[in-house]
Amino acid sequence: MNPIEDPLIIAGEEFGSRLITGTGGAPSLHVLRDALAASGTELTTVAMRRVDPAARGSVLDVLRERGVRVLPNTAGCFTAGEAVLTAKLAREALGTSWVKLEVIADERTLLPDPIELVEAAEQLVADGFTVLPYTNDDPVLARRLEQAGCAAVMPLGSPIGSGLGIRNPHNIELIVEEAGVPVILDAGIGTASDAALAMELGCDAVLLATAVTRAQDPVAMARAMRHAVAAGRLARLAGRIPKRRYARASSPFEGRSGT
C-alpha cells in the first residue's frame, strides 16, 4: 500500500480523508451508504441508544461494508456522569476506545457545557479512552481540553444542525495557532464554502452530518464536501495572498501598444 499523502493523524492513527461524517438525519441507510461513499470519509460517528427490536438493518452494517471506522458519540448527555457511562457502553458494544465526547447544556442550543465537558474528558482519559471533545469555539477551553489529555479538539462553527457556518473565524484561528493536537471543526457547516473556510483557517479536519444528510441531494452534497475539504486544505498549505486595499495588476504595464 502506498503511504497516504498528507494524512490526518489522530492519536497516531492515519486517515487519508480529512472529512469526518456523522450518520444522523439520513433519510435511509441506502442513501447513507451512497453518501458515505461519495464523501470519501474514513471515520464516521454513531450514537448509542436503547435497542429497538423492530429495527431493520444497522448503521454498523453500512459502516462495515464501506470499511469506515466507527466513532461513537455521547450525544444527548447533559452531565459528565451520563457521558462517561455512554462512552463505556460504546466501548463495550463496538470494541473501540475512541469517543466523540459531547456534553450539552440544553436542548435549544445544544451548546457544550464546558464544566461537565472537562470533567468527563478527565475521567475518560484516565480510563484509557481516546477522547475527541465537541467544544465551544473558546481558545481557553480548547487549551484546557488538550491539557486534560484529549487527542483532538473539535470546536463548533455554530450550533449543531444550524447551518450557520463559522460565526467566529478569529477564535478558530486562535485555537489552531495554539493547539498541539488536531483541530476538527465540528458543527454548523451549511455548505461547501463553510467546509473550505474551516480548512483555510488551519483546521486539520471537518466533522459534519446535517449539511449532507438533510441536503436535498445528500450524495451530491457529500461529494461537494469531499472536494471542499480537499481544496481548503490545499489552499491552506499553498499560502494565500495577503488582502490589499487597492488593485494590483496581474498584466504588465510595460509594452502596451501606443505608449
Binding site: 456523522g22 450518520t23 444522523g24 438525519g25 439520513a26 447513507l32 460517528t45 454513531v46 450514537a47 448509542m48 441508544r49 436503547r50 435497542v51 429497538d52 429495527a55 444497522s58 448503521v59 454498523l60 466507527v70 466513532l71 461513537p72 458519540n73 450525544a75 457502553l89 460504546a90 458494544a93 463496538l94 466523540k100 459531547e102 452530518a209
Partner: peptide, 10 residues
C-alpha cells in the same frame, strides 16, 4: 437494565 446499540447519529 439498559441495553444499547449504535444508531444513526452525530
Amino acid at each position: 437494565l439498559e441495553v444499547l446499540t449504535a444508531v444513526q447519529g452525530g
